[in-house]
Design a protein around this nucleic acid. Structure first.
Length: 289
DNA sequence: AGCCAGGCACCGC
DNA sequence: GCGGTGCATGGC
């Protein structure tokens, strides 16, 4: 992998194990819009990024080296050794080999912790389309304008300070359903300091999880997603309905509880469990297992 | 049309 | 500690 600046753009070349379609459509990112062939607008970290992939070249438009280094490099997990990760996982068995080859360009991207907390609260008992709509509605009502393109405005995801102004009644009008009260609880606990986001990064994963579980609407699975997508704690294995289906049918071969599935997967896949989870999730969802 | 969605809190035992 | 249930809303 190499990168260089070309006028206002950053051009990344020789990037392997990267497919922008698969990355964005893998159920971890909800703020993007397809504008062309392998071409997207992504909103993250108060930035609006146009990105385009041409084979093993990625172009990040209208950005700077500083932004690349401070945001996008981490966001797209460009320092992770996917060749190594895949090779270790592929040695395990035929199932995971199949899942990896099915979506070889999937990556676990690094997004904003606070945004992941709210996003994955929204995700419970919901579908991906409606999660996207919910995040968009919240951003447009409580976020700030961070870019304009003609008459289209782009909004940042609201900080805790901005979102804490929301009431249950207001949120209910955004059609996010029963999750409205959980969002209010998350805002209250974060703004009051009952849950200190900055401290989470210094904590061991299990301690950070205990903190996250203080928030109503954050259970075992949502906490795992937050730890993974917002903090890159790879030693988790979020077990949702899709993962449960694929693990029960292809690995465990009997109906067991989700806790047991996570435990099995963490032992079996070891330190790369979460990467395995991401490949398996994508595979299960696309094949409607 | 009706089942279900990247689950969770809350309730009885 | 466990298992059962209701939940807002709309995608499919």
């Amino acid at each position: 992998m190499n990168y260089r600046q070309e006028s206002n753009n950053i051009v990344i070349t020789n990037l392997t194990h990267f497919d922008i379609d698969e990355i964005l459509d893998s159920g971890q990112c909800f703020r993007y819009e397809r504008i062309g062939e392998k071409e997207y607008i992504i909103v993250a970290y108060k930035k609006v990024l146009k990105v385009k992939q041409e084979n093993d070249t990625i172009i990040l438009y209208s950005t700077t080296l500083y932004e690349y280094q401070s945001i996008w490099r981490k966001y797209f997990s460009l320092d992770d050794d996917y060749a190594k990760i895949k090779s270790i996982l592929a040695d395990k068995d035929e199932v995971i080999r199949e899942a990896i080859s099915y979506a070889a360009g999937v990556r676990i991207i690094k997004q904003d912790l606070w945004e992941m907390i709210i996003t994955f609260i929204l995700s419970q008992n919901n579908n991906i389309k409606r999660i996207q709509q919910g995040v968009k509605a919240i951003s447009e009502k409580y976020g700030e304008v961070i870019g304009e393109d003609g008459d289209v405005k782009y909004y940042s995801f609201p900080s805790p300070k901005l979102l804490v102004k929301a009431t249950v009644e207001e949120l209910r009008r955004l059609k996010i359903g029963f999750r409205d009260k959980y969002i209010v609880d998350a805002c209250t606990k974060v703004v009051s300091g009952q849950v200190e986001l900055k401290r989470l990064f210094d904590m061991p994963t299990h301690e950070a999880k205990v903190e996250l579980l203080k928030i109503k609407g954050v259970g075992n699975k949502v906490a795992d997603c937050i730890l993974l997508f917002g903090m890159h704690r790879y030693e988790v294995f979020p077990t949702d309905t899709w993962i449960k289906k694929i693990m029960v049918s292809l690995y465990i071969k009997k109906d067991v509880k989700v806790d047991e599935i996570s435990k099995f997967a963490l032992e079996y896949f070891g330190e790369y469990a979460s990467y395995a989870q991401q490949y398996l999730f994508h595979y299960a969802r696309k094949n409607r297992l």
